[in-house]
Design a protein around this nucleic acid. Structure first.
Length: 419
RNA sequence: GGAGAGGUGACCGAGCUGGCUUAAGGUGCACGCCUGCUAAGCGUGUGUAGGUCAAAAGCCUACCGAGGGUUCGAAUCCCUCCCUCUCCGCCA
């Protein structure tokens, strides 16, 4: 969340951020409630001060066996006033809190302004589309021909968007996950975590999925738990309500998890095969850094994700999201889009974002800097990578004329483990 | 799910027959002093958040797992919930 003091001091910046991000937060209501809150707080504090002072007097008089009935009479009046103020204060604090949580993060100044993805900025292309002397097939056709997927039966047991990977398809999926994990561990210095796949409401609020995206998530009502839409949620929240030392930073974690997304209300578009799923696998990178380091860390994480695509020898492009396409919590985001040769388009396989202190405030993650000052740290995360579209790209970019697939060399050892 | 014990400041830990605790004491940390022997001793300081203020200082308020309640006054009494530990039950 944004610092309330900052909002109060810079309402225009916030107003512009809400507008640029196509959000619908009621800033004026928030400012009015905040004003009201401060008045109440002031009255409450003064009354409390009075009560504390007189209570001391009462205690002294009682000890000296003196009469304190006059003070007691006054205090019974004060106490009832305090009670009223207290409940008003509780109410208004909750209202302010609720409103603050609807204020989106402020985009960085170098983020292109635009209302939707059509105004995203393509930063660069890397590699070349493979040259083929035959008509490339679509990944679903390739997968069917090679027996890698069974989507109808996935749909039967769960619903559409829940894929079954079969035989070598399952093995390839597992190889991708293992390769990416090991790559980030060995070459990029991350620490691996295995984390819960169901998290509570507090965690979802901490990273910013709630309250906005509740309808997009699978919810276990009996226990009020949510299936994670990304490992970002459990991993970022591991330090919620904690105070770290600057000596502990930066922290770099990588975690593989399945991800679950209801994506309420989105049908039809780009849903063929593995393009858009309710359950998919993803290797996620998360960093906790000092504020001064987050801009650099973002570029590093982008490079970490790109390394995977380059290791696979895939053609892709790097996109900087415009304000309208930025997520609620993000200050700046790069997407990596990989070339799907069969369908002739670029597919998003990674999103790398800097959240500044936005998530750290929400989740209450702080650290003591070298001067001993308590500060909110910065969080970042990036997919490294999501597997379904990566697999699409591998199938489509590495297909041969006969419909078979030539697995990238770096994956071979992961496909051929022997027991 | 059942029974018992417990959750106190960065950490350990006292207080828990309500007011003389602005949460004792210790460890750690910071600064200073002392000392020739790989360290110890002594002294001082040491949280977070909100408010007030142009700002700082100062002052006020809140915070002893969370939320309610009783009371003039709650770390301390009562209720609900969460979590941890031990034992039992159930289960991969």
């Amino acid at each position: 969340m944004i610092d309330l003091k900052y909002i109060r001091a810079n309402p225009d910046i916030i107003r512009k951020a809400i507008c640029d991000k196509n959000e619908k937060a009621d800033l004026d209501m928030l400012l009015a409630k905040d004003e009201e809150r401060r008045k109440l707080q002031y009255d409450f504090d003064n009354l409390r001060a009075r009560q504390n002072a007189v209570s001391q007097t009462i205690a002294q008089k009682k000890r000296a066996k003196e009469d304190a009935s006059e003070e007691l009479k006054e205090m019974s009046e004060v106490a009832s006033q305090i009670k009223i103020l207290q409940s008003d204060l509780t109410e208004i604090n909750a209202a302010v809190e609720e409103l603050v949580l609807t204020i989106p993060n402020v985009p960085q100044t170098d983020v292109p302004i635009g209302k939707d993805e059509s105004l995203n900025e393509i930063i660069r292309h890397v590699g070349e589309p493979p040259k083929m002397d035959f008509e490339p097939k679509d990944h679903l056709d390739i997968a069917m021909q090679n027996g890698l997927l069974d989507l109808p039966r996935g749909a039967k047991i769960s619903g559409s968007g829940f894929p079954i990977y079969t035989g070598d398809g399952a093995k390839l999926e597992r190889a991708l996950i293992n390769f990416m994990l090991e790559y980030h561990l060995q070459k990029h210095g991350y620490t691996e975590l295995m984390v819960p796949l169901a998290v509570n409401r507090k965690s979802m609020t901490g990273t910013g999925q709630l309250p906005k995206l509740e309808d997009d998530m699978y919810h276990i009502s009996e226990d009020d738990l949510f299936l994670i839409p990304t490992a970002e949620v459990p991993v970022t929240n591991i330090y919620a309500d904690e105070v770290l030392s600057y000596k502990d930073l930066p922290k770099k974690y990588v975690a593989y998890t399945p991800c679950f997304r209801r994506e309420a209300g989105s049908y039809g578009k780009d849903t063929r095969g593995l393009q858009r799923l309710h359950q998919f696998n993803k290797v996620e990178m998360v960093r906790f850094v000092e504020p001064e380091d987050s801009a650099t860390a973002l570029e590093e994480m982008l490079a970490d994700a790109e390394d995977i695509l380059m290791a696979f020898g895939l053609h892709y492009r790097v996109v900087s999201l415009c304000t309208g396409d930025l997520s609620f919590a993000s200050q700046k985001t790069y997407d990596l889009e990989v070339w799907a040769a069969g369908s002739g388009k670029y597919l998003e396989v990674s999103s790398v974002s800097n959240f500044g202190e936005f998530q750290a405030r929400r989740a209450n993650i702080r650290y003591k800097d070298a001067e001993g000052k308590m500060r909110h740290l910065h969080t970042l995360n990036g997919s490294g990578l999501a597997t379904p579209r990566l697999m699409i790209a591998i199938m489509e970019q590495y297909q041969k004329a006969d419909g078979s697939i030539q697995i990238p060399d770096v994956l071979r050892p992961f496909m051929e483990l022997r027991v």
